[in-house]
Design a protein around this nucleic acid. Structure first.
Length: 729
DNA sequence: GACCTGCTGCGGGGTG
């Protein structure tokens, strides 16, 4: 590590020596110069456990080693848990450099905050929400405490891109640069991230106005081998006979496959996760062996989650976690033997993250997918006959392994809800502000660059009418009565929406929280934390559900609204059907990654595709209904359904297939032609007809006009539908 | 037909 090593501060070199590191990793060497230069942004993109954090902190702490007054490095994390991790990890390096490190979030100690308030110095580790509260409430102090700020570093940057929280974060950073008067000498931003879909696009997401150049650093070698298999399961049409239900087969496979080593099983929903865990725990009990199966998801208490995380990280006991995306993120749990995905995943990018959790040193990453299809009967619809879930899974694996494609972040949205939040936050921070100043700060210089002056005027006027803002005689805007109420409540600082949650309690012990959007009644049975419980009573004032242990029971309904399947996946499915082959080309060979049942299921689906002539035809009769297969993303299907509904036609969509009830192919084709001839409505017009457009936290405060614009852009895609319809005729 | 994340200031009670 000659040359690069010597550019680091002597104390940092000492620290490296003390760690016994023989050499720096590739990305760590590559990051030294661009970070030391202090005049450019840097994107460090590498997989988990590749040493990204050190790649930033070694050169950055070198550069500020002699700065004592004020914070020099601002580290921003999406998770409190990650801040606590980093605080521990930075301990010895900071000690060597005699540098302060302050963890600052809702649960961190008041004493540490108090000390940092009086003598700000070194590294500040913070969440976007806590940074927001500092700007709104103590901007004067922020101005002096950050006066010598040299770096902003954002951990898990991929978790922010294209989200409400990401827009808030970018706005916060812009407001900070504005407050510190650093527009002509911007503070370098460093983003640490898992590998991202379209790296070239990321710098624009890191600094929308591109006032600093951005260097991209990735680890080039990815020689890890991957083993992958799709297993099919068939749910029998009737419970009679000897056929075992698919769930039973899935569970016994999991039991045999997982016992004795550590694995992660992703089952998409908390509900599924709980059900699988409950059955596997019971199987251990029946066989009188120690339990190795545990659930892990966001509704479980911190204690239960941490116990499991520690058990996985220690690695001395075989442990299988039945989990949701909580174990997809950066939490340090070490690598597992294999990853099993039960049912089709929701996106290729999350499949990729999950796969990255397996692959121990010197061993391949192993991914298995368990896909269940219903036995086809006379009553089966086209979705079953085509084996759509299985083929979607095959397509996703091909895209991931063969095309190396995964969904890019969507940066085209307006985010009006978060824009409204930022208008309130800036008004509170400044006390009074002119409309043109707000527009410049948030939209022209800030991250809301898709928003026009017309949108902004509509938003502000409505905020005035609803008393969120008040205009003074001077023209300045200040918070109105309603605005004060919102800003002064502690829930103001987060920009994302959360459902109401009940605590599930047994005796004196809290098992976790359950988001309640379906009724939970006394004596009802629920599955939670991998066990079955009977509800004793529900206290709606204290938001507590008291339960006792029991056998048997029906699972609770967990809430949530869906996301969209990308059009690229549907196109890959069409390709697979058309070719009648899903295998991956490897040189002159074709690699089959399906087991016998999955292969048989695929053949059934491909046969149906061929018989129905779906290569040529995309509108077909299915019983009394007509199905339209556009082989495009869910936005296109949504658009078509909305248009049909507006014409009084009964229509719906499932898995990208639009179904028109009680009709004929001739009829539907005539309707589709009519739609093209008379012209398609705009996305906004379609949105205006939708009854419920409230998705994000502050949507209900946004003016109806721009709410429709934002909703329409998010949910519909008229242009793609148009090109599909035109291609038909 | 899904998942995840975060926030204040203050008062009361317990512990060292």
């Amino acid at each position: 590590m000659k040359a690069s090593y010597e550019q680091l501060d002597v104390s940092v070199q000492k620290w490296l020596f003390k760690q016994g590191w023989s050499d720096l990793r590739e990305i760590q060497k590559l990051a030294i110069e661009p970070i030391l230069s202090g005049c450019q942004d840097v994107l460090i993109s590498a997989s988990t456990a590749a040493g990204k954090t050190e790649a930033f902190f070694l050169p950055a702490s070198s550069a500020v080693a002699n700065v004592k007054d004020g914070f020099s490095i601002l580290y921003i994390s999406p998770l409190k848990a990650l801040i606590n991790d980093q605080y521990r990890r930075l301990d010895s390096l900071a000690e060597m450099l005699e540098m302060d490190v302050t963890p600052w979030h809702g649960d961190s100690s008041q004493a540490k905050k108090k000390k940092a308030r009086s003598t700000p110095s070194g590294i500040l580790l913070i969440t976007p929400e806590s940074l927001e509260s500092l700007l709104v409430r103590e901007s004067g102090w922020v101005n002096s405490a950050f006066n010598s700020l040299s770096y902003v570093v954002i951990d898990e940057f991929h978790a922010f891109i294209g989200t409400e929280r990401g827009m808030q974060l970018l706005s916060l950073l812009n407001r900070l640069e504005h407050l510190l008067d650093r527009y002509d000498k911007p503070i370098p931003r460093v983003a640490l991230s898992a590998t991202l879909g379209d790296l070239e696009q990321v710098p624009k997401s890191l600094r929308p106005d591109q006032s600093l150049p951005c260097e991209i650093i990735t680890n080039s070698k990815s020689t890890a081998t991957i083993k992958c298999q799709v297993r099919g399961f068939v749910e029998p049409a009737s419970q009679e006979g000897n056929a075992e239900s698919a769930d039973t087969l899935v569970c016994s496979e999991l039991y045999q496959l997982c016992r004795g080593d550590s694995h992660l099983v992703f089952a998409n929903s908390r509900n599924n996760t709980e059900n699988l865990a409950a059955r596997l725990v019971e199987m251990c009990e029946e066989n009188i062996v120690p339990n190795e199966f545990f659930p892990h998801h966001g509704s479980l208490s911190k204690e239960l989650r941490e116990d499991l995380e520690q058990r996985l990280q220690k690695g001395n006991l075989p442990t299988t976690a039945l989990c949701t995306m909580t174990l997809e993120l950066g939490i340090d749990i070490g690598k597992v033997k294999s990853v099993i995905q039960v049912n089709a995943p929701h996106s290729v990018s999350s499949l990729r993250q999950r796969l990255g959790r397996s692959g121990r040193r010197g061993n391949p990453s192993i991914l298995r997918m368990f896909i269940t299809e219903d036995d086809v009967t006379i009553r089966s619809g086209i979705v079953d006959k085509l084996r759509l879930e299985l083929v979607q899974s095959l397509a996703m694996i091909r895209l991931l392994l063969d095309s190396k494609w995964f969904e890019p972040a969507d940066t085209s949205q307006y985010h009006f809800s978060t824009l409204l939040h930022q208008v309130l936050a800036v008004t509170a921070q400044w006390g009074g502000v002119r409309a043109d100043q707000l527009f410049t700060l948030l939209c022209k210089k800030g991250p809301f660059q898709n928003v026009t002056t017309e949108h902004f005027v509509s938003l502000l006027k409505h905020m005035g009418n609803t008393r969120l803002l008040t205009q003074l005689g001077s023209g300045e805007l200040v918070l109105g009565i309603e605005g004060e109420k919102i800003v002064n409540h502690y829930t103001f600082y987060a920009v994302f929406q959360t459902p109401e949650e009940y605590r599930v309690v047994v005796g004196a012990k809290t098992l976790g929280t359950l988001p309640v959007d379906s009724l939970v009644l006394p004596s009802q049975h629920i599955v939670f934390a991998g066990r079955r419980w009977k509800v004793l009573d529900v206290d709606s004032d204290k938001k507590v559900i008291n339960v006792e242990a029991t056998k048997g029971g029906k699972p609770p309904k967990f809430g949530g609204s869906g996301m969209f399947t990308h059009g690229k996946i549907r196109q890959e499915m069409y390709k697979i059907y058309s070719q009648g082959d899903y295998r991956i080309d490897l040189g002159s060979q074709k690699v089959d990654f399906a087991d016998a049942v999955a292969r048989e299921l695929f053949n059934e689906g491909a046969k149906y595709f061929k018989e129905a002539n779906l290569t040529e035809e995309s509108v077909i009769q299915s019983g009394k209904s007509v199905c339209i297969l556009t082989w495009s993303g869910d936005r296109v299907a949504n658009t078509l359904v909305a248009i049909l509904l507006s014409k009084g036609v009964q229509a719906g969509s499932y898995a990208g297939v639009v179904e028109v009830e009680n009709s004929t192919v001739t009829n539907v084709k005539r309707m589709l032609k009519d739609i093209v001839v008379t012209g398609l409505p705009t996305e906004t017009e379609l949105a205006e007809m939708a009854s419920d457009k409230i998705i994000d936290k502050f949507d209900e405060l946004v003016s109806p006009e721009i709410l429709s614009i934002g909703f329409g852009h998010r949910v519909f895609d008229v242009k793609k539908l148009h090109s599909y319809l035109v291609s038909m005729f």
